[in-house]
Amino acid sequence: MAQQPKKKKLIGPHEWRMVIVLTAIAAIAGGLLALVNEVTKATIEANAKSRLRSSILIAAGLYTAEELFPAEGLPKLSAAQVDQYFKEHIQEIKADSFTYWKVYKDKIGGELMAYVIRIAGSGFQGLVAMQVALKPDLSEILGAHVVPFEIGETPGLGFRMTEEQFWSQFKGMKTEPRIEFIKFRDPNSPKASNQFDAITGATYTSTTVRDLLNQTIAKLRKIIQKEQK
């Protein structure tokens, strides 16, 4: 060792500066983001809740999709009005990680008009979800609705489940023995009351809807039977 290199400090003032500047930028950015998140959190959650509640009202046949999810302009009911309607007519029930809604005709505790369930699961590339209203004896579907914004399926294919033509066909469908889908449904066939028309080119989405429907209705049936015992 002829030449002893001068020992260079591993962390000099320049290196400290790098650490401090980067840490400061990250800390400020993180702090501001936390702040913005805190400010907007309530709005984001309220949006999702309001959409779900509006969808339940449509599924139950109390309002039309055009009234609550208009293509243009404002919905007929404000978020506050939807909440008010819920307070008066609809009871939300949570039973072992499963939520369903009881819709009453005049007031909560009065004449039961319908049960509403939300079916939700993963489809071909995103979320598949639908709100379904059932007769109090669960034998027949009273109506259904899909919130267009939350569906994650392929545009033009699976995403077509958000079209009224798709979800409106569940109205009047019998749930027993089980719901099936078919291509080109024949209304005169004896099985027609259990069938819905599949979406062309989106068999996976249709399968998911069918399975979720049958499973969720069976689940609700079990819970209600337990309640009545």
């Binding site: 913005v36 998140n37 907007t40 709005t43 984001i44 949006n47 959409r51 914004f149």
Partner: peptide, 9 residues
């Protein structure tokens, strides 16, 4: 965040 809060669709 702003899009999600104020322009959800």
């Amino acid at each position: 965040i702003f899009l999600r809060a104020y322009l959800p669709p």
